[in-house]
Design a binder for these strands. Sequence first.
DNA 1: ATAAATTAGTAAGCAACCTAATTATATGGA
DNA 2: TCCATATAATTAGGTTGCTTACTAATTTAT
Lengths: 154, 154
Amino acid sequence: MEAGKREIAQRLMESFIRFTKLNRPQGPIAGLTPGEAHVLFCIGRAGGPEAPGIRVSEISDSLKVTSPTITQFIKGLEERGFVERTADKEDRRAVRIKLTEKGAQAIEEAHKALLASFEGLVTHLGEEKSNLLAELMVEVVSYLREKKKTGLHG
Amino acid sequence: MEAGKREIAQRLMESFIRFTKLNRPQGPIAGLTPGEAHVLFCIGRAGGPEAPGIRVSEISDSLKVTSPTITQFIKGLEERGFVERTADKEDRRAVRIKLTEKGAQAIEEAHKALLASFEGLVTHLGEEKSNLLAELMVEVVSYLREKKKTGLHG
DNA sequence: ATAAATTAGTAAGCAACCTAATTATATGGA
DNA sequence: TCCATATAATTAGGTTGCTTACTAATTTAT
């Protein structure tokens, strides 16, 4: 039924547009912009205080943004004491980035706030619907990823 | 079950973050940036060629952005011949904005492209799941709207 | 008449991205 | 060994889509 399909697409489109608008984060959390929090999360995931620290290129790969973008974020985060840069001894082109104590605390705070807001959503929808939604969103993400890949040479 | 709830929230959070990243539009459609297309859609919805045209304030209310943002978009769109400005005769502070022929064509093209991409998603998920997703997203949107409202004075 | 509100616009700036070019270092092959 | 090439990070500058603060013109209410 083609008409049904178009109608569903229309509804999906509208809800996604509204979602995108509303989902834009309003203000900073723990003194971090949303983008900074993202980068900081990525650094935090990369290992504890004993680890050598993550590289700029690894962050940019992981977050799918270019390395100059990461450099800019790191610059701001370092100035404000959230991260530390150290030279890599085995590859002197590389830079190792680690969280400071302040950075680790900021992550914890931001993570709590973020999770709390999603827990609010789960409470609103109920666990069953939330599960369903998460599954569907995973499928949407895999579709978008596929589309983006083939879209480049198709 | 608190542990379950947190786990669901976590999965929801991750899928939403990935979605947001992938859903960012890549390039212009019909010579319009995504933002311009949005504004043009809004102008198009406001009435046909015989209507008096929409006001800047009406667009900004509808799209939930400030009026200077709209002014900037209109400026660019007028320069490139997508819209026309005319003075309102009954309220000389106001400006009436209408689509040109070129603008109407651009909307049609952009709308087709957008709808086609969502139809691709509907095909991928199937109609049943797509319907479900649209319904869930409507609930998410209403939750976010509510949260944003109460968040301001709570 | 005058104060208050409204409409649109300008100026300046921020967040989060991008590309192109540059610097420093690493590495494989003639 | 030396050179060409590749890689790591950075700098410089641009884009998109928003913001706030302000001005000018006009309308409305007192």
